[in-house]
Design a protein around this nucleic acid. Sequence first.
DNA 1: TCCTTGGTAGAACGATCGTTTTGGTAGAAC
DNA 2: GTTCTACCAAAACGATCGTTCTACCAAGGA
Lengths: 203, 203
Amino acid sequence: MGTQSGHPSARQRLLDAADELFYRNGIANTGVDDVLARAGVSVATLYAQFSSKDGLLQASLLRRLDTWQAYWDEAIRAADSDQERLLAVFDALKLYREGQHSARWCAFLSTAVEIYETDHPAVDLIAADTALLTRRLCSLSEPIAGAGADQLAAAILLIYNGTLASFLRGSPEDPIGQGREIATLAASAFPTRPGPHHSSQVP
Amino acid sequence: MGTQSGHPSARQRLLDAADELFYRNGIANTGVDDVLARAGVSVATLYAQFSSKDGLLQASLLRRLDTWQAYWDEAIRAADSDQERLLAVFDALKLYREGQHSARWCAFLSTAVEIYETDHPAVDLIAADTALLTRRLCSLSEPIAGAGADQLAAAILLIYNGTLASFLRGSPEDPIGQGREIATLAASAFPTRPGPHHSSQVP
DNA sequence: TCCTTGGTAGAACGATCGTTTTGGTAGAAC
DNA sequence: GTTCTACCAAAACGATCGTTCTACCAAGGA
């Protein structure tokens, strides 16, 4: 299974092309031929790797979820206080966008716009992204807000959603810096919980 | 020109149907036939009223912009302090959604997802919505934050975007109440500007 | 050498899309 | 009574969509 060849495999290029086109121009507006042209891959290869266009979308979202989680892991690890760990979600977003990853705003929310109340497998991945956010933010809020952790996590999630949507709107400027500032304000509104409770493990 | 007949005209029903389908299931995923079926209108009538599907979308967004502005006007009028007037954008959103207006999250941001870097006339309406928000929030922030009005307005806009995107994500719960609380916190972080400067006119 | 793997090019499929056209109907205006 | 307006039903248009199929090619391992 030597998939790490000199240049990216057809599968990788298909995922890259899907990443770039689906979440920038819309999924329904992106034809299979557009993906093929950008990836430089033939039709038969696409349907050999993925069973359908929806399968490609599903694989693309799955890869993005993994990648995003890894970035978030790293940002949490780099933080050096409870508050910094909670705010690390904004640092992770910054690093993610600085990477080569094409991201207009958010792949999952973008997909959620086009797929709604269907049995599409992508809805599970959107839910998984939201579950990851909720679970981690609650866990990271606990050392700060204690019993009010759920409330603080909800506030951070809304601000995080606002950062993403601000990229989509194009306003205000610097949504990450702006969001991080507001999140800092929200975190400081909760009573600081002192104590040696230092959960270093990533939730 | 007796358009105010007993039951809504075909044009109104087309706009209502477009409102309900475009921003819930996506524009590209909504066929013209779907709109026609829901409106109970024939194809010929649609193309007599609007030149194309894009024309219908344009008209729908224009109506939404007007309606939304009227709701916001009313909410600002009902507020009785500078801070309440700034936060009235959340009250307006609450009233708008409580009305019969179908709204999954935001028609303009939803359209922005599907239409990007094109010469589609809808992009101007999306920009108009953002311009309205920016202009008003800056104006309403001025009595509170003075020279820092632009900063406060940017924060409120990000939180407002977060409220909308939270509806799309389905989390956190009660995005309007949550957003309003965070916005209150952001407003109180600015030095209160006392003084008789009471601009009662809507910007 | 043979055969599998992973790929390409290109035509063709049925379905669906936005749009146009044809022909007809009910009611108000003059 | 005729004309005009607003509307409907249904067929048809070319284009594009996602998907499948046929045929061929190059490299690697046994």
